[in-house]
Amino acid sequence: MLRFIALRLVKAAIILIAIVTLNFFLIHAAPGDPAAVMAGEAGAADELFLQQLREQFGLDQPLLTQLWLYLVGVVQLDLGFSYRQQMPVAELIGARLPATLLLTGTAFVISIVFGTLAGVMASARVGKWSDTLISTTALLFYATPLYWVALMAVLLFSVQFNWLPGFGYETVGGNYEGFARVLDIAKHLVLPATTLGLFFMAVYMRMTRASMLEVSTLDFVKTARAKGLKKSVIQRRHIFRNAMLPVLTLAGLQAGQLVGGAVLTETVFAWPGIGRLMFEALAQRDYNVLLGVFFVSAAMVLLFNLITDILYRVVDPRIRAS
């Protein structure tokens, strides 16, 4: 097991460096650079001004030198400095991380709990009207664009009924403290987290349902039935446990994206998370911030892939043997 983890970690490090290098060239291939964007925004700029900016940002150096300097920094866990925002990149990401984790984490829990539950329910009543209802609803969530759901949710629950705040992380200027603040944030969290969770909820539901149905036709389930076990016991102990593997795979994939944030949801709900930081950095060609976000998300994906692989071995001993 230890040898397996060590091997995977070495592989991950190599992949990470390859990703950083690739991202670096991709970003630089886009037209424009941060100096030109800043000059453009200033509404007036001359060559001297651009020159000053490029020197300050280190953009006047050859591309390979810039890449080398960046890689050396990354190895020392230094993600560089955002000249646009006048802050170290690590600090910028760190400031946005709690909001993003709260949002994506909540959506993750919502989708996995309700999705799996709905999947189990649907598979137990396969072909009946309740199965059709659950499956159709899931298909609807799966097929509807996220931003549309988001906007409709705001219109309905925020504008029409005024039940929930439509945007933001907390009431700006509310000065809530302690439990009142937690409650305030929770209220703000409901719409974005639900919106974001709906899509994955549908995916979990469909995955669980299909997997449950597949496992229920296997021989050991027949044996269990023949033994005269109760239906609920078979569902829980025999079918559900064996049907969990594909769900786990999906959860691993989704968990890897937790840190990357959710650009659309964060934008519509004005949620101050990493997705927006990344999107704005892209528009502004803020290279260091963009690379930093990519680096952190890539590292997380690799980490969760590793965790998923380890979990496989825990859940299903057959994988360990092979």
Binding site: V154, V159, P165, G166, F167, V172, G173, T267, V268
Partner: peptide, 20 residues
Amino acid sequence: IYWHVIPDAASRAVAYETGV
């Protein structure tokens, strides 16, 4: 004075409509 950063144009309109 509170200056609110709301990145989506439709959400900015909603923010005015809801009185925020």
